[in-house]
Design a protein around this nucleic acid. Structure first.
Lengths: 334, 334
DNA sequence: CATATTTATGCACACGTTAACAATAGTCTT
DNA sequence: AAGACTATTGTTAACGTGTGCATAAATATG
């Protein structure tokens, strides 16, 4: 079996209480005693049993990192950056437990005993159920990527509506008036926000978008590809397409080139997210940058603060999005 | 505080032992008693304290999923598929703890008490340290993606050397003889394997590859881009380039088109991994498919089997790689 | 020098669960 | 009908750790 503080106690000729205090660097214990005990612990390669610690200290040392889904509609880049961001903050202090919300059949097992804090990377309003559950249990919680108003819940997200507005406005300012939209996955909040921002730009500049210029997508390459094929069948084709993420934009560009047309010569394309490959496709993709990694680091920092101060300060942090102009949009105004 | 089996016992008028047995569906307890207890547990919204369970049962309900690094050199797609694959297998039974090996300052905290099993997605020979540690502690372990010979360790990987051989051979069969190589990240086993396979193909067909035709990369877009720029400066440019992953291939294609040249008209490009975007770039990328998700599901299945049977069957599973021919290679033979 | 105070350590219990063993009542066997 | 057996439940200890309180020794106080 593994070595416990009692084993150390026996060797050091003290009680296990003293060992516990010594290893936790309690001021009650004499410095020499501490040192003697530390040496023995080291020699025996002692590791505390975290289950026992958790039981008595009422802390789990676990952080939950929950995504709306791991299997459908979450893009690899987004997922990766979110985990990276959180991981860079927590270092050694916590274990990071990654889970898809749609894998839960019941939230029953999510308790204050099993998670010291939880980060929900929320992509859908449907996540409200788990958010309410977590908040109801009094577990420190931060929700990323989607606005929530639940009391006591921290919230970090980017202003996607504004980003989409910038993208739409940019297309118009470049002289486009026949502008189509490939929407995000239905039920995803980001899909709604980006569409809203786009529509606001259209309204602001009084550009009419016919119904045939709006097609819902699934945030993946294939759906962007298919949607663009639809647009290409229209008698009056759009001169520009705003795609609600970069992957769909890439799919759309593929469809355009397969049809023997050019980006941006024949049709301009704008994406959203500024994924790593956006700068490297040909032509490079004009898109909206969303600070995913920053969102997740900020979220993690706030969560840890909240856990350690035990105070539940509610605060919403809205990070800016930014239009990144590259080569995939043609100016018609000159 | 939260409700415990003792609370239930009091209400049911039985001992807490009986409650424990009832909730674990022990055959020792009368069916009516069980049912009565279950109802009360339900009403009180009882959730077992897993730390207490862990302490006495000597199981943590945790599975570790360790990557060589989370911050440098692991591509998003790879990371995503690996987690997805493992997650799809473990469902509710375990918590999945994701970590970067390079985040560990000491492996001290990795014990049989804290992990029921561990999956190491290994990309570098440097991971041998943690593998030895885990195996030494007697924790069930499966290593993915890199061959290991440590006793008692399960191993699932794809035959990358063979894949690279196929890619190299294909280029030669298409009539290429000036073939360059953009290597993977130094220290990564995959980089070595892919290079080896490529070299074997060259040797097999007696094609000489000058030193200037080999440049080390970092597995990211930028390094592929830079490497290709180097090749373009050569007096005698290669007619084809084998890139050790798709991201570098995309970077390379970008450099080619920036130089005003065409893929595959002027230079052919082959990648490795068959990431999701490979089919959607223009021209679509000829590459080697590696069954990442299958590797991770197979690995997870074997690990669980090993944990539950408690037998440590050592076995290496080598999955096939496959050349996916698309448009990025030109045939010179016709 | 007697008492008060500080310092260092130990004792006993608690956290929530499971399990070996004991106990009780009812049933079967011959 | 006495002993053996079975079914059901309870008693108690254990897992490894932290902590309130008691204790003992050392030191300070007046």
């Amino acid at each position: 079996m593994s070595v416990t503080i009692k084993d150390i106690a026996k060797l050091a000729g003290v009680s296990h209480t003293t060992v516990s205090r010594a290893l936790n660097n309690s001021p009650l214990i004499q410095e020499e005693t501490k040192e003697r005990i530390r040496v023995i612990a080291e020699q025996l390669d002692y590791t505390p049993n975290y289950n026992a610690k958790s039981l008595v200290l009422d802390r789990s040392y676990n952080l939950g990192l929950f995504f709306t889904t791991l299997s459908k509609g979450t893009s690899a880049g987004f997922f990766y950056e979110a985990i990276r961001g959180v991981n860079s903050v927590i270092q050694d202090r916590y274990q990071l437990i990654v889970k898809g919300i749609d894998d839960y059949t019941s939230f029953h097992s999510i308790t204050r005993k099993s998670f010291d804090g939880i980060i929900v990377v929320s992509q859908s309003d449907d996540d409200q159920g788990i958010i309410d559950h977590i908040a109801g249990k009094g577990i420190p919680l931060v929700v990323l990527n989607r606005p929530v108003t639940t009391a006591g819940v921290l919230n970090v997200l980017s202003d996607e509506e504004q980003g989409a507005f910038l993208a739409g406005s940019y297309l118009i300012e470049q002289g486009h008036s026949r502008i189509a939209l490939i929407e995000g996955r239905q039920g995803f909040k980001s899909a709604q926000n980006r569409k809203d921002g786009f529509e606001r730009a259209m309204k602001h500049y009084q550009i009419r978008v016919p119904e045939a210029y709006r097609i819902p997508g699934l945030y993946d390459l294939e759906s962007g590809h298919k949607a663009m094929q639809q647009f290409l069948l229209l008698k009056e084709r759009p001169t520009a397409v705003f795609c609600c993420n970069d992957e769909m934009a890439l799919g759309a560009m593929k469809a355009i080139s397969e049809a023997g047309m050019q980006v941006p010569g024949d049709i301009s394309v704008v994406g959203f997210d500024d994924t790593v490959f956006a700068a490297y496709v040909t032509p490079s993709l004009t898109t909206v940058r969303r600070p995913i990694e920053q969102i997740s680091t900020e979220g993690a920092i706030r969560l840890l603060g909240n856990i350690e101060n035990k105070q539940h300060e509610t605060e919403q942090l809205l990070l800016k999005t930014e239009l990144i102009v590259r080569e995939s949009v043609r100016s018609l105004s000159s």
